[in-house]
């Protein structure tokens, strides 16, 4: 990562400002809002998978948990500030427990995948079966497969009557994504972030150097879940009804596809992958000649086979080769060999 953090901040502000100005001219803000939410969700997995090497098959669980936490809390509180905070904290706490169980047991790749997958399934099955009136938290019925409708949506903190919706909600989401993106950048620049990347590269070496790999992986996992939870809460405000399909395996698969297509090990890749593919899906949904799922699947297979690094690293590499300044002297910094295994696992 080149440049300094303040440099990053300026870039993020400029790019966000530009996009907020230009994008609504092309796509309606209603659609853009959901693309931003998905971008944030992509970023959450991109952080723990791309930089921490933790392949979580159940990122949708944290997304759904955030959304449900928000809805349940909003119904009980009747105001949106505390529910938003809870929607970040509850998934993070849940992920910390789950992560501690997995990482302190030294479970790796496949087993990690299975456990996160299974936990997502458990949540899905449980929420799906809560249609009866006995499943109540405070005033909020869980609703089972009928979902939760009619909860308080986002309002200006302190005044529950002043709803934030439509265009202004789009601006809120865009700014939040930029803030989260900045925080992720700052995290990756901190020693915590650099050690996380070190753990991704070689876990044994990092633990021999005296770092507690288990605690650090758990913490990173929880941070990823917190971001996913925030995305979930934003989704809840956008959709205004929640159904258990948030926890479905298809949702988890999509998040992984976004990261693969966008590019692992980059911050921008998963965000762009998520927004791009979600928009593609939106466009495909307007025709009925070819099934949507078929195309999603085909994209994933083709990317794994032919472009396993994803779009952003490929384009960045091309850019560097064609236009980049050749650094004088030591070049190993940029030309460090990146074998396929690491990029994908």
């Amino acid at each position: 990562m080149q440049g300094s953090l303040s440099n990053d901040a300026i870039k993020i502000i400029l790019i966000t400002g530009f996009l907020i100005w230009v994008m609504p001219l092309m796509i309606s803000t209603y659609t853009l809002t959901i693309l931003i939410v998905y971008g944030m969700l992509g970023l959450s997995l991109g952080l723990i998978w791309g930089f921490g090497g933790i392949l979580c098959f159940g990122q949708a669980a944290f997304f759904g948990l955030g959304a449900y936490t928000y809805a349940i809390a909003a119904i009980n509180v009747g105001e949106s500030t505390a529910p938003m905070i809870l929607a970040v904290l509850v998934p993070a706490g849940f992920a910390a427990l789950l992560g501690a169980m997995m990482f302190y047991g030294r479970l790796n790749d496949v087993y990690l995948g299975v456990i996160t997958l299974v936990v997502t399934l458990i949540l899905f099955k449980f929420i799906n079966s809560t249609a009866g009136p006995q499943y109540v938290i405070g005033n909020a019925r869980l609703g089972g497969f009928n979902g939760i409708p009619g909860f308080q949506t986002l309002n200006i903190p302190g005044s529950p009557e002043a709803y934030i919706w439509g265009d202004s909600y789009f601006y809120v989401c865009a700014v939040l994504l930029a803030v989260v993106f900045f925080l992720v950048s700052a995290l990756l620049r901190s020693s915590f972030g650099r050690i996380a990347v070190g753990i991704r590269e070689n876990e044994t070496r990092m633990s021999l150097m005296g770092y507690d790999v288990r605690a650090r992986k758990t913490a990173l996992f929880a941070v990823g879940a917190a971001i996913a939870g925030l995305a979930g809460a934003l989704f809840a405000n956008w959709a205004e009804i929640l159904t258990p399909s948030l926890f479905s395996l298809g949702q988890s698969a999509e998040i992984i596809i976004w990261c693969i297509v966008g590019g692992l090990g980059t911050r921008m890749g998963p965000v762009l992958g998520a927004a791009g593919l979600a928009y593609l899906k939106f466009l495909l949904g307007q025709q009925s000649a070819v099934d949507n799922t078929l195309i999603t699947g085909l994209i994933l297979v083709l990317f794994v086979l032919f472009l396993p690094k994803g779009v952003v690293p490929a384009v960045a590499g091309l850019w560097k080769v064609s236009f980049g300044r050749r650094p004088l002297g030591r070049t190993h910094h940029q030309r460090r060999p990146r074998n396929r295994e690491r990029v994908s696992g």
Partner: peptide, 21 residues
Amino acid sequence: RLVDTMLATWGLSLFFIGLAT
């Protein structure tokens, strides 16, 4: 390439679901 096969076969599963639909 364990993880890559997982992802590619996940893609295949979506592909077949679409095809069957």
